[in-house]
Design a protein around this nucleic acid. Structure first.
Lengths: 199, 199
DNA sequence: CGATCTCTTGACCCTAGTCAAAATTGGTGG
DNA sequence: CCACCAATTTTGACTAGGGTCAAGAGATCG
């Protein structure tokens, strides 16, 4: 596991970036979908690795990229380095926003989380490939309560009556969640402070 | 307010980095004490400025530093740039940790927040210059409940019976909070990825 | 010496957690 | 193809942490 030398990319499946609480409860910080870099956070905060982990939620396949090779590529293509930083900073932005969301009532909190997933999955995907248990650990609610919230969302015509998590009314969901995707955009940050990566 | 051209430093007083919820409630992300850079976050996430603000909690005096001058100084003294990034990243680290803390019960949450303040204020300071209202907005609890928690902390011999917030038993406080200051340290991150700031 | 801000207290309520058990679903192997 | 097992999802009853409302008691400050 010479992870310090390699970057990992999720090629297929669903994973999450999580931590285990003292009492065994799992806290999910973020979900990862194909195309995501895994464990980026650890490059910015090495110590955080001691407290958190990347966990597969379905069977996953991953690819790794040699860090030296990547760094050379970044030397040649600065845009690549910028994209990487953008990804890391977006993760940060999500944390901050989650602090705001975390003190809203359950229904809105869950709605928000679902919106976030839809953005991550791409514009026309409507099925979120997670279990209620995953959502519970990410939203910080009990599974039982998540289930009740889901039933309410179905009643409201936002989710389908299927067993899987399928959004049938995206607009209504956004409305419930008071969702503004703006926060996901680091905007002009990186053109102002141009970041380079050296050894 | 040509803030894009200047960095602001808090010279005296207490300020906070906060946002206003739709319903008027104030959410405090972090407190700032003398020596802190204010609004650093906005340099990394320009768009976040639209949603958050820096607010004075006591009368404050601030200094500003011309950004061009600072950047020149950073060219000459790379350590300065690194220190700045470290500060910004530490802020991030605090957010992440707060997500973990935010789902613990009130007493521990408050204890944790107090620990954080003690670290920020310096090792032998024991008086935290905040009101219960400030603490409530930072912990995400009602003022009424904060008050009850404070009474419990006094009962436990952690806080003095004074009206102000004075920690008399730091060890006990750390214990209650399960506080590990490790997360505040970005560690070796910046020696691995040496960050430079260009125009 | 009011006026105002902060801190306290008490009564009551509501959201979400816990516990426990059943119902569905999805495999998996015989 | 069926029986059985494990993981999810669902339901119900009960509990509790923390919110809200309202009023009172200290502090502070001009």
């Amino acid at each position: 596991m010479d992870s310090a030398k390699r970057f990992t990319v999720l090629l297929d499946g669903v994973a999450c970036f999580s931590t285990q609480h003292e009492d065994g409860a799992r806290q999910i910080y973020a979900f990862h979908y194909p195309g995501d870099f895994l464990g980026l956070h650890g490059f910015v905060f090495p110590r955080s690795v001691e407290f958190s982990e990347v966990q597969a939620l379905t069977s996953c396949s991953i690819g790794t990229i040699d860090r030296d090779a990547l760094e050379q590529a970044m030397q040649r293509h600065p845009a690549l380095g910028r994209a990487l930083w953008r990804a890391a900073l977006t993760e940060v932005s999500i944390f901050r926003q989650r602090l705001v969301v975390s003190r809203r009532p359950a229904l809105q909190r869950v709605a928000y989380l679902l919106c976030e997933q839809l953005v991550r999955l791409g514009d026309d995907e409507r099925v979120i490939p997670l279990t209620q248990i995953d959502v519970a650990d990410a939203a910080g609610l009990s599974v039982v309560h998540i289930n009740r919230v889901f039933q309410e969302l179905r009643q409201l015509g936002v989710l389908s009556k299927q067993r899987l998590i399928e959004v049938v009314n995206k607009d209504r969901l956004h409305e419930l969640a008071a969702f503004d995707p703006g926060y996901l955009d680091p905007g002009e940050a990186l053109s102002q402070w141009d970041l380079h990566i050296e050894n």
